[in-house]
Design a protein around this nucleic acid. Structure first.
Lengths: 332, 332
DNA sequence: TTGAAAGCGCTAACAA
DNA sequence: TTGTTAGCGCTTTCAA
């Protein structure tokens, strides 16, 4: 049997309430009493039971995190930002992988709610009506992180993906390119697909370049899909001279795909990636990339969530963090 | 107020005990009763409170995971293995980053124990006496994952790092090299430092090659430390012709460091990395690397933990998973 | 097959 | 400053 607050109370010759006060740092305890209690705790090796505390207080100091895939270089960095801020505010996180699967997402949401988490950080791709319905039914606050909410109903933390993509493509155009291709994620994916694609289109159209269907390829975010896309681009009659990739990993594939066929980056082809993961510095030539501050997105999401959990006033429900381009050797 | 088991009982016209039985899938319930209860649950939108259940049953179906850094490509893959198996056995995980910091590790251990986790997977570098003491005091099982326990007192899952390093270095020697260098992690680190270093030494000595102090550099696991180490190696009078790096990321640094100075890999210098992370396929030349099955180590660790939590008989407390070398273009 | 009732270990009024 | 006491929502005997 584990020692309980009751054992400590008896050992110290005080009531349970007093022990509880000491454990919770309540100042209304006489120093000598506090000392007695602390000694009893030490002697008995008492360890408070957070489950009992959670039941009685209705707060678990635990938050749920639903993430597509923790092994992704992108999300793991985000998760780190979340965890660091959670720790700072004395929360623990329950981490769940959803694999971009809607059923899993909904199921995990309910599991976390059963576990009485005090709040949830949600990362996903699509926010469907069913998501919206479930989110609304949640008794605790939910913050969307690196996830687009079309209805803008829920608090969220993102960068402006459309604008970021626009900036990248515009830079390529200003470098003199008219044959600018894009390796996109699935267009069903609001973040990595649709938004970036929209930015690409806008930049192309504003520059009065005729949109060319062949210059947009849909990849699956992997390195290999970058290589394949590049082979396809190089097979075109009019091969592109600049390429914007939706993620760094695909951009690396693009670069190596070009090099494998004897092309030089950036002289024959300029390449820009997205996310500015550590990979960007680990290629030759090093990769110019749109900086998405992943750690910060996670950290800000968690910070925002703490505000909701504390019922603080929140002025900015939908936050857009700044982005920029980190220029390296894959562009001129 | 949330609806409780009591509300459901009243709504269905049965006792709390019966509702509890239905919720927990106890077969001793008449089908018609079960149906009544299920309907009441549906009508009321009842959601069981896992915290109350945890307090009453003394099982939380939650396990703690202490990991150095979830944003590392290595550990995040391991974490994914842990989480997948946890999910399979209906556990959730509380994930905590320790940054290889002993105080944090001990503190997190206690926090997790307060939260009444049913078991813990621990990843760290050093297992000190204080760790041992704390682990022994834990009321729930602890499994060490990718972490060396010098005393072999606790269940653990690893590969044989010494042998793996030996195999890599031996391969280089058999390729005709006598000037084989190593970029190691800190020798205080049992896994990435000491064990691999020991394997390197053994291979060198067995081949009757005189050990050369200049050929061992201590890096900090980063890409940049690989570049720096390479600069140092190339500054030597007798530069090494083959290099074994303790991690893939450092190996990439080695390769690019060599290329930046005009050397060709593998013709001038052969390179072998360690871990076979996805990075290994994302360099030119692609990197030969010792395969450490990270996902599997995580998965097996969690599986092992479930056995302890279920009080099953465990035959192999200390498991060593097989390793091999994945040959790519950075070696001949 | 079902129900009654005693906890699980703690917090939070309220009273003293 | 301290103690009393009634829950928090559930599981688990034990009895019927």
């Amino acid at each position: 049997m584990n020692t309980t607050i009751y054992d400590v109370a008896r050992e110290a010759g005080v009531s349970m309430a007093t022990v509880s006060r000491v454990v919770n740092g309540n100042p209304n305890v006489k120093p000598t009493t506090r000392k007695k209690v602390l000694e009893a705790i030490e002697r008995l090796g008492y360890r408070p039971n957070a489950v009992a505390r959670g039941l009685a207080s209705k707060r678990t100091t635990t938050v749920g995190v639903i993430i597509p895939d923790i092994s992704s270089i992108f999300f793991s960095e985000l998760a780190r930002g979340i965890e660091d801020i959670a720790t700072m505010y004395k929360y623990n996180i329950i981490l769940c992988n959803s694999d971009h699967n809607k059923e899993k997402e909904i199921h995990l949401l309910n599991t976390l709610l059963e576990k009485q988490v005090d709040g949830i950080v949600f990362m996903g791709s699509q926010i469907t009506e069913e998501h919206v319905e479930q989110f609304k039914r949640s008794p605790v606050p939910i913050v969307l992180s690196a996830t687009i909410d079309p209805g803008k109903e829920f608090p969220s933390v993102n960068i402006n993906y459309e604008q970021a993509a626009y900036d990248a493509v515009k830079f390529l155009i200003e470098n003199g390119h008219t044959k600018v291709a894009m390796l996109s994620g699935s267009l069903e994916d609001p973040v990595n697909g649709y938004q970036k694609y929209a930015g690409y289109r806008r930049a192309i159209e504003e520059a009065n370049i005729t949109f060319n269907d062949d210059y947009v390829v849909i990849g699956d975010y992997t390195y290999d899909s970058g290589i394949e896309a590049m082979e396809m681009f190089l097979g075109l009659n009019e091969r592109p001279t600049a390429i914007f990739a939706g993620t760094d990993e695909m951009a690396l594939g693009i670069i190596h795909g070009a090099q494998d066929k004897g092309y030089n980056v950036p002289n024959d082809i300029e390449v820009i990636g997205f996310d500015n993961t550590r990979l960007a510095a680990m290629v030759r030539p090093t990769l110019t990339s749109v900086v998405q501050p992943m750690y910060d997105i996670g950290a800000v999401s968690m910070r925002l969530l703490t505000k909701y959990m504390n019922k603080e006033e929140v002025s900015d429900e939908v936050v857009l963090l700044p982005h920029r381009i980190e220029f390296r050797q894959s562009t001129k």
